[in-house]
Design a protein around this nucleic acid. Structure first.
Lengths: 344, 344
DNA sequence: AAATCGAATGTAAGCGCTTACATTTTGATG
DNA sequence: CATCAAAATGTAAGCGCTTACATTCGATTT
């Protein structure tokens, strides 16, 4: 009852009066064992509270049925959501997911790669494609397949994601079509974050195409928190002439900006319009509701799992799957104020 | 360069011209190895892209430096936050955290216990104390220490948390002091969730103490989503006479309720007051800001890590650490409407 | 009843690593 | 320079498991 140490296969075998091989078979391919024996073994397992040791199993079988994911942060609802479906899809294939976070730091991402590799991950889910060559080289050397998600990557590698640049540009086009000429942007930190960089680029290119000068598109980078969004908004609203719309790198920043606008006594969208990106739950909760870009996280997680599984099985896969995004028009985007419109 | 399979200790040893023992020592206690040798070994490690195999290591050393956490869901910001600091605190002790989720299902929680035990977790963080005896018995049998967080548990076991009941009661007292007599509650699903149950109980007892009848405290249980909160709010607002305040089991439900109120054309707190619980970021973002109970997640995560580490080291520990909560008064709680007040 | 064969079970060799113990090397000392 | 303890390194025995191969056992066929 209170043996201090955990039972092993041997203990079970002894208790059931069979060999360890038979116990192992009961656990892994029960139909190879005749019923009476199997029952005896299972009772022993139950009685001893035996759980197979993963390490031993992995070592002997050279399989782990584990895949890893390294995400920048757990703090962002969008990753949580996508990961959830990734996880669900994986478990349908009997795979376990190990999650690690990099905190947007490439060195830490690399560390986590090693940890997950050491734990026997058969494949890895990574976010985006901005990372040192040495990191991907490491994975390749160890023969660990990986897929990038949340964007579409470069020439090589496997990706399930969407075109951040195009989606941002499309939203910017709509903003401009509403009559805005003095835009501003609160972007995510672009260092080693291709999603943030692409979104900024998208807005910039749309602005440029519309003949809007660099000076009429101030961009401030901010960490993905309400506070930083609010702070950036403060700076932007101090600019004269004031931007008529603030496009944000994601919804969290946008909500921070809305908060700041309220604080400053600016009506949204009356005095200033705001847009987000991601369409997390939050976007539907604020008042007015946020105009944003919807990213189908669940579908992305699912597709990423399928792709990774195929890669692990060495089945043929297409190199990149593009998930379509859509613009969700809600309350925070309006036309510029009449006096603003003509002062442009 | 492109050997198909991952390098082992043996490969490194051969490459460096030393024994496996020396390589192992280089990795685990470098100061036992003289500098020139160590450098040679490290170069080989680097050149081969070697990462130690966790399974082998765990097997041989009978240590994993891993602790596990089983949380109900990753989808709730509050757990994410607490876990983050738990993780940080652990890594200061060189421990790795493995996270699993139970989806509020005791059977699944038990499964995950076995998975984590199989992976060699030295200790476990669990949420709350409501679970079948057989689950805790399993852990005890295997000698895996565990601490419950987010509440204070029963007679035995180790806990780091707060008194959900008392905190809820305190908030209810304040609500009643403001003049409300017709309360309502949107509670979390109480099945196998002591936090939800305790919060409901707290409100009930405060109401009872104030002489408020059961009929003047309708309670609807709802899953922790905006939608379910909104749905419950819809039902509560159909009651006549209408409750003047809706106390919610957490902030997510409260925000859902606020959304619904807006939809119904009810002013908060003018027509109906709303309170939350947890004080997640969201609470400061809605308009008006949410009156809620602040739970110091970070401190709790930290304290839980300390306790678990001590338990693992078999150092003496106090059985329960209570983390104080506080009430955050913001905009969603006002007095009842004048006409309501006198109709009670 | 002997021969045959497939199903059930057992035997034992590792999987990659750590570590107690044995051996060699080093450098200080007489 | 021989001596010897301490430091550095090597040897080899497992850790708990899977699995190829060997063995045993019954049932079926002749």
């Amino acid at each position: 009852m209170t043996d201090n140490s955990k039972p092993t296969l041997d203990d079970v075998a002894r208790a059931a009066g069979v060999s360890t091989a038979t116990v192992s078979r009961c656990l892994n391919s029960p139909d190879q064992v005749i019923a009476p024996t199997r029952i005896r073994v299972m009772q022993a397992v139950e009685a001893l509270g035996y759980t197979p040791d993963f390490g031993g199993r992995a070592l002997a079988s050279r399989r782990t049925n584990t895949v890893g994911a390294i995400i920048p942060t757990m703090d962002n609802a969008i990753f949580a959501r996508g990961l959830q479906s990734f996880q669900e899809a994986l478990s349908r294939f009997g795979k376990t997911l190990l999650v690690a976070s990099s905190n947007y730091d490439p060195a830490r991402e690399r560390e986590q790669m090693e940890v997950l590799a050491g734990r026997g991950a058969d494949g890895l889910l990574l976010i985006g494609s901005a990372r040192p060559e040495s990191s991907t080289e490491y994975l390749r050397r160890r023969g660990i397949p990986f897929v990038g998600a949340w964007n579409l990557g470069g020439e090589d590698g496997y990706f399930v994601g969407f075109d951040n640049r195009a989606a941002a540009a499309q939203l910017a086009d709509m903003v401009i079509a509403r009559g805005h000429r003095r835009l501003a942007m609160i972007a995510g930190i672009s260092f080693m974050n291709d999603r943030a960089a692409d979104r900024t680029e998208g807005v910039r290119s749309a602005a440029e195409a519309a003949g809007i000068g660099r000076a009429d598109l101030p961009v401030i980078e901010a960490a993905y928190t309400f506070e930083d969004g609010a702070r950036a908004m403060g700076e932007l609203m101090a600019i004269r002439p004031r931007p008529t719309v603030v496009m944000c790198g994601n919804d969290v920043l946008a909500v921070g900006a809305m908060q700041k606008a309220r604080e400053l006594g600016l009506k949204v969208p009356g005095d200033v319009s705001i847009t987000g990106f991601d369409d997390i739950d939050l976007a539907g909760v604020v008042d007015p509701m946020l105009t944003t870009v919807r990213v189908p996280h669940r579908r992305m997680g699912q597709a990423a799992a399928d792709m990774l599984i195929k890669l692990i099985k060495k089945e043929p896969v297409e190199r990149r799957i593009e998930i379509p995004t859509s613009i969700i028009e809600r309350g925070t985007l309006g036309p510029p104020r009449a006096d603003d419109e003509h002062s442009a």
